[in-house]
Simulated scan of single mutants.
Amino acid sequence: MDPKIEQLEKVSGKALLFGGVYSNLQALEALKKIAERENIASENCFCTGDIVGYCAQPEQTVQLFKSWGAKSIVGNVEIQLRENAADCGCDFNEGSRCDDFSQLWYPYAQSRLSENSLDFLKTLPNNLHFEYAKKKVTIVHGSYFNVSEFIFKSTDWSLKQPNFDVTKSDVIIGGHCGLPFYHEHKGKLWLNPGVIGMPANDGNPAVWYAILDDANNQFNYTYQSLDYNYQLTSKLMQNGLLPKEYAKTIVTGIWDNTEILPTIEENQQGHPIEF
């Protein structure tokens, strides 16, 4: 078995998919309540990585995630933190606004995580693989080949297909890019549930996640928006140590810049997302 993949038992019943918690404790608390309301067991809750990120409560967020018992793979942020690296490993262009902002939020997070939290991050696998409704599923962060690769809906299928080939998967669940989407092609499905730590550049402070349902032994998925106490999240970020632009994004739902986005996604800024 490829050592990069942790093989799980067959998963059945409802499953919760989400990514990019980004140290947003209020969003994680709200999502946990959704899982409890939907009777989704913690072992059926899957995160695509980057539990830690832009917001103000990295330690509290990791500890809540740990106590909840949800499953996660590593994002680039977890890899960098547990290796005590000097930067977030997001693959931002040097000198870009995202790169400049990362020089604020990454050392902030680094300075506030306990050894206990870092030890927890070291337990997270690179990828998860399981069967769901007769489909072989692999969870990646960016891509199987590069944790920091930005894969969007508009990304050409020729760049997605090798992920299915090497993992022998029917479904890839991805993260990292910050936008929810699905892309089906010749019986294969790339599904990104979105992130809960930051809005999806759609002009709405609500964030995104997805729910799987195997009713009638079919692979069903639905996207849901999550309302949470974003005013508190934004207020906590206005501490003089984190980018004030990100605190604004939490409220407005609009990204400060679109440096990472392909033209198609860039042109969708401020447009409501519908599934």
Rank of each mutant, 00 (worst) to 15 (best):
I172F: 00
I173W: 01
G174P: 01
G175Q: 02
G175E: 01
H176L: 05
H176C: 06
C177E: 04
G178W: 04
G178R: 12
P180C: 09
Y182E: 10
E184H: 10
E184K: 12
H185F: 08
K186L: 08
K186W: 10
G187C: 11
G187F: 08
G187Y: 11
G187D: 11
K188T: 05
W190F: 11
G194A: 08
I196M: 12
G197L: 03
G197S: 12
G197I: 02
M198C: 10
M198I: 14
M198G: 04
P199W: 06
P199Y: 07
G203I: 08
N204P: 05
N204K: 13
N204G: 10
P205K: 05
A206K: 14
V207E: 09
Y209A: 04
A210N: 03
A210S: 13
I211V: 15
L212R: 00
L212F: 00
D213K: 00
D213E: 09
D214F: 01
D214T: 02
N216Q: 11
N216W: 05
N217D: 15
N217L: 12
Q218C: 06
F219C: 04
F219Q: 01
N220H: 00
T222A: 06
T222M: 06
T222Y: 03
Q224S: 13
Q224M: 14
Q224I: 03
Q224K: 14
Q224V: 08
Q224H: 15
D227N: 10
D227K: 12
Y228H: 03
Y228C: 09
N229T: 03
Y230V: 07
Y230P: 05
Y230T: 05
Y230Q: 07
Y230G: 06
Q231W: 14
L232S: 08
L232F: 08
T233N: 06
S234P: 11
L236R: 09
M237R: 03
M237W: 01
N239G: 02
L241C: 01
L241N: 04
L241V: 00
P243T: 10
P243Q: 07
K244W: 08
E245M: 12
K248Q: 15
K248L: 10
K248W: 07
T249V: 04
I250V: 15
I250F: 10
I250T: 15
I250A: 09
V251Y: 03
V251Q: 11
V251R: 06
T252V: 07
G253E: 14
G253Y: 14
I254Q: 09
W255H: 15
D256K: 06
N257L: 05
N257W: 03
T258P: 03
T258R: 04
T258G: 11
T258W: 02
E259V: 13
E259G: 13
I260Q: 14
I260C: 12
I260W: 04
L261P: 12
P262F: 05
P262G: 08
T263Y: 03
I264P: 06
E265R: 10
E266I: 13
E266K: 15
E266D: 14
N267A: 11
Q268F: 09
G270P: 12
G270T: 09
P272Q: 06
